[in-house]
Design a protein around this nucleic acid. Sequence first.
DNA 1: ATGTAAAATGATAATAGGTATCACTTATTA
DNA 2: TAATAAGTGATACCTATTATCATTTTACAT
Lengths: 129, 129
Amino acid sequence: MNYSRQREIIIDALSKNAVHPTAEKLYDIIKREHPESKIGIATVYRNLSKLADAGKIKRISALENSEHFDHNTFEHYHFMCEKCKQIFDIDANIAPDITKKIFEQTGFVVKDYDIVLKGVCKNCQHRNN
Amino acid sequence: MNYSRQREIIIDALSKNAVHPTAEKLYDIIKREHPESKIGIATVYRNLSKLADAGKIKRISALENSEHFDHNTFEHYHFMCEKCKQIFDIDANIAPDITKKIFEQTGFVVKDYDIVLKGVCKNCQHRNN
DNA sequence: ATGTAAAATGATAATAGGTATCACTTATTA
DNA sequence: TAATAAGTGATACCTATTATCATTTTACAT
């Protein structure tokens, strides 16, 4: 990855804005704070995506851009296999009392959650592609 | 909520397809299994949304349709306040060893996660609207 | 310093998931 | 069974994101 002034600005703006902004939000911030830069919105999207792929920043996106629905409303979490794209259920006792703990540590009342873990499922681990 | 044949088909299809389908996927399944129904895609979206609002099914969507980015790549989770829409960091020790536990219980290798908890932050609890 | 190839940019067209609109149909209930 | 509320299908629209492409920057060998 070569150096670019725009990328530097983007990384800098993201590190100074700990609000987990969207690409759009970050674009607004940059335009406001660097009116001379004339940065394009595509550059922001492009760089955020590239930086996330490179592991320099984290993309928070859960289920790759489309909503999924679950008939089971009983508390449980989800695991999405990167290879076969299937979503599996994970028993809630993996992280018991998470709601209670968060309230104790932060005072935040948890009403809902999307806990999506990603990786490779058992089946796909034994496959080549 | 009144009865409708389409809604019945949607609920039935969702309960029989534990793969956590998207609205689009469910629409395809329904067209295939009920070719007589002539259901429209908008009806599927509308009903899934309504059913999720009513708590009859669960919507898995994390961050309401746009990706967010985080400069901090060190393991931690997120809490989104429903009222002020801010995203806060939650320390990873809330659910320690989650990766290890999942591997032990399921054999799935976790490589990444989006753990997004939603509710009301401390500040907003003391506000009226 | 300078030429060249690879990488990056900005503007904008294109795409895709999801929602709004509206005329029409179906359920509910008095 | 008539009146009204709720639901439907078709499709236009919106919005987040990606692709395209001509132009500009960067890296780096000369």
